[in-house]
Design a protein around this nucleic acid. Structure first.
Lengths: 336, 336
DNA sequence: CTGAAAGCGCTTACAG
DNA sequence: CTGAAAGCGCTTACAG
């Protein structure tokens, strides 16, 4: 069953194609009788105009932006939605479609296929790696894209990222201000990932700058991992008085493990959490949070790409959004 | 600056359009010299083939599925991602693009515009209302769609939904089995929404069936609302020994309010939570959860739509997925 | 009020 | 190895 075209309708209604077209668009007046015959024919044939042909003829392209989101972790959290929803809104409001590409592997094939189809005019990239294949690929295709994150080398790239260096420093500053000298970082252990790598480096810098030892404990993003990491840390470094934890799930686990070992929070142990999805407390505690401002980051990246696509001049091509330090109840002065 | 076309390239390289086309597709052999001239011209002009024209000429349509997701609540949770990520994966694997339409209002204009553009061959609808404009609209356009949810009247519709009736009954059954007779429901108060309306109705049925009084307390989906709702409930109905709470955020708040009034969980108060995003505990408690199986629901809906689009025969057009009751630590036998 | 024709930017038999 | 031409399914001046 071949596609039914405007020609079929025209033939059946015994009019010309132009008349059918105008009957549909209403761009010129049509006699009542003709209109009826046309609509009858359309109904009988089940005709629906081909949008591809329409857009070719009218030279209007329906614009779409691709959002490339590899699902690296098996479990997604509320944090991801903050990025997605924010970017999607900016993009939809600007009259673009928002096309989400999710996949479990980091295979670049999906992107190549999609980019080649031309369905998206530009891309937003999440989970940016220090050395990211996607960047190389899109660059050589000449397809516009903006990173939500940063690579190792960013010359000529467009990005919006969280200024995690500043954020981590702010956390360490706050903790040392409270007298803590034994601070540990329960971090995601993925040096290939730009965000991870920078966070880890920032913590080292922030500690060194204050002549503190930087203690690390790698940690997955789940409750159970946070629990285990905290247990390991307290075995290894019982002198620890403050921790910075990668995300809310892990933080909840860490709190649990700390309590199980008789450490009260914040009396015995201060805790700052980042990558917070803002949907839960830590038990009865309002946690002290370093908010990475996912909405701002995503919205700005989307906006930058839209400007890029419409040929507007960009005042900035590389933007760092300073994370927000949100006061809570999970840190306190260090007890002597 | 008009679009640079294949004709421009052909002229510049002093060959015909067919040769340029073949140089690009590699579908026939081309002399090295010609190829070089063509690629040079392409590079100089910055030519990129128009995918719209390509797809018209080749009669291949790039297939996309639209995911219509009104953001009714200002804050999104991890639950949403479970639907989105799951549907996106099924859709991407089937070779379709996944187009996410998010908007804050429930204006049907976005959908109309997008549907008319023909960019999506079919739609998946979230946040289904009892009487849903989108259904009426897509129906009369003849555009295939599958509901993730149900309307009031579902004749002729395709849907996959959580069998919330069974789920709520299971919760009440479990609680009465533990001897509870004073059960309250902290629920989202939105009767227009199919899921809400059915959940509320199911609770009434489940209670009536067991000659229990059904107590309701409306509640938004945030921590603060859960806290307030719980406080109101305990004022109004101090005899309550068990609650079912709409989502994890509200549950966390409810726990907080209960503890603040000296009710231990589960010793003094049993709690079952549904719409759980599976990313947090309730403080130190592993909550007892009615899991709505978002991933299964979304994946099945996506699969159904794909079958629909490819003209496959569907064994079922209306599917209810039974929620999973996950044992936890937040319910206990009722104390005399 | 209506039709014949050109054109959107490609691809692909058909010839040579 | 290469070109001229037809065609994909529409829209839209141009005529009448």
């Amino acid at each position: 069953m071949a596609r039914v075209t405007i020609a079929d309708v025209a033939a059946k209604a015994r009019v010309s194609k132009s008349t059918v077209s105008h009957a549909l668009s209403g761009k010129r007046s049509i006699s009542e009788a003709t209109r009826r015959r046309i609509h009858q024919a359309i109904a009988e044939l089940g005709y629906r105009p081909d949008p591809v042909a329409q857009s070719l003829a009218t030279r209007t392209r329906h614009r779409a932006i691709g959002f490339v989101f590899p699902l690296l972790a098996p479990e997604v959290s509320g944090l991801e939605v903050r990025f997605i929803a924010s970017a999607a809104q900016v993009i939809n409001r600007a009259g673009y479609a928002f096309t989400l590409m999710t996949h479990l592997d980091d295979n670049i094939g999906h992107l190549e296929q999609f980019a080649a189809s031309g369905l998206a005019e530009g891309f937003l990239l999440m989970q940016v790696q220090m050395h990211d294949e996607r960047v190389t690929y899109l660059d050589q295709c000449g397809i516009p894209f903006v990173l939500i994150g940063r690579c190792e080398e960013n010359r000529g790239l467009y990005y919006v990222d969280c200024h995690i260096e500043l954020g981590i420093d702010r956390c360490v500053e706050q903790l040392t201000h409270f007298g803590h000298r034994q601070i540990a970082f329960l971090h995601q252990d993925n040096l290939a990932m730009g965000f991870s790598a920078r966070a880890i480096r920032s913590f080292a810098d922030a500690c060194q700058h204050r002549s503190l030892e930087s203690v690390y404990e790698p940690c997955e993003l789940s409750f159970a991992s946070g629990e285990q990491a905290m247990a390991r840390l307290l075995d290894r470094r019982p002198e620890t008085t403050a921790i910075i934890v990668w995300n809310d799930n892990a933080a909840a686990g860490a709190v649990e493990a700390a309590l199980a070992r008789g450490r009260r929070i914040p009396a015995d142990l201060s805790l700052i959490c980042f990558n917070y999805s803002s949907i839960s407390r830590l038990g009865s505690l309002q946690p002290t949070v370093l908010d990475i401002r996912a909405e701002d980051v995503a919205a700005q990246a989307a906006h930058m790409l839209i400007c890029l696509l419409s040929g507007e001049v960009l005042s900035e091509t590389q933007v760092l959004v300073e994370p927000a330090f949100i006061e809570g109840q999970s840190i306190a002065p260090c007890r002597p």
